[in-house]
């Protein structure tokens, strides 16, 4: 399958990139690894006139951790680099795990976590756990930077809150709170190597036996990844007993708005939300208690 024709530019700074994007507007597309973008172009779903490659912007490849600020994953950090980064593995195991379960070795050597986010697929593997950690995006534009909570970034499948001239510089993940645990669970029906039919991340913070904070994020069951707010409400401030986990899981399944597609029917997805939410909460609880 051939690619349609386009121009290619590779700016060397974020500033320069933003200026190009500002000038070209909708006719240009940012490219990180290209593993989503080029496929969409091959299938004819996208036909940008210009591709703005981020490869030459050295600072974007960075992954760093600072105790008070947390983890920064630059826009060009590869999935594989995130998956194998010692600090990420230790302090954000669900983030490393999600990255390590995305696609295949080769695609992880090309694709990025930020690309996975910006592609805004409802099934994206890396979004739920980052949302559960309360991650923010750092967005650059010709006039400076802004921050946005990851969960406010998505408008619909493939649609995100970015204005003309803007690009995502990276994700900032706050330091994990004391007594917290985050688990990522996903299921695909057909193979161990597959796009998720349903994915769920759960974060709990346990303080003196009570659930001080909880987040449940559901993927692939709505136009964007969503929080199961009512299910969270059932747990907040309570003891995290098996029974309440089961109840919350059932509630989450009610909050899901799944569709039927090639990968699963809506009924199956709904059932799986309950199963995966339960498993995620159980694992998160275990991690929280062990921390």
């Amino acid at each position: 399958m051939g690619l349609p024709k386009f121009n290619y530019v590779a700016p060397e700074t974020v500033q320069e990139a933003c200026q190009i994007l500002e000038k070209l507007g909708g006719q240009a597309k940012v490219m990180a690894g290209g593993t989503d973008l080029l496929i969409k172009m091959k299938h004819g779903a996208l036909r940008p006139k210009t591709i703005v490659g981020l490869r030459k912007i050295k600072e974007l490849r960075k992954i760093s951790f600072r105790k008070n600020q947390g983890l920064f994953i630059g826009a060009m950090a590869l999935l594989e680099e995130v998956a194998s980064h010692p600090k990420v593995k230790k302090l954000y195991p669900a983030v490393a795990y999600a990255a390590s379960q995305t696609a295949t070795v080769q695609i992880r050597n090309m694709g990025t976590v930020v690309g996975n986010i910006c592609n805004a697929a409802p099934s994206a593997d890396n979004i739920p756990s980052l949302m559960a950690f309360g991650a923010e995006l750092i967005i650059a534009s010709p006039n400076g930077e802004r921050r946005i909570l990851l969960e406010n970034f998505f408008k619909g499948p493939g649609e995100v809150n970015l204005n003309r001239g803007e690009l995502v510089k990276g994700v900032l993940v706050p330091p994990p709170p004391e007594g917290s645990g985050v688990s990522y669970q996903f299921i695909s029906q057909r193979s161990k190597v597959d796009i998720a039919a349903v994915c769920v991340a759960a974060m709990v913070v346990i303080d003196k036996g009570r659930t001080r904070d909880v987040k449940i994020v559901l993927g692939a069951v709505a136009p964007t990844p969503i929080r199961a707010l009512e299910a969270e409400g059932l747990l907040r401030g309570k003891k995290l007993a098996d029974r309440s986990i089961q109840k919350a899981a059932e509630q989450a399944s009610q909050e899901a708005r799944p569709i039927t597609d090639m990968r699963a029917t809506s009924e199956y997805r709904r059932l799986m939300v309950a199963v995966l939410t339960k498993r995620a909460l159980l694992e998160a609880r275990q991690m929280a208690l062990a921390s």
Binding site: R190, S191, K192, M262, R263
Partner: peptide, 25 residues
């Protein structure tokens, strides 16, 4: 795992991402 998803005679799963032949795992 393998199956064609068809809609009005049209095959919808036309890549190996969605036509699932088993992998090594």
């Amino acid at each position: 795992s393998e199956q064609f998803v068809m809609d009005k005679g049209k095959t919808l799963n036309t890549t190996f991402l969605d036509y699932k032949i088993p992998a090594a795992m």
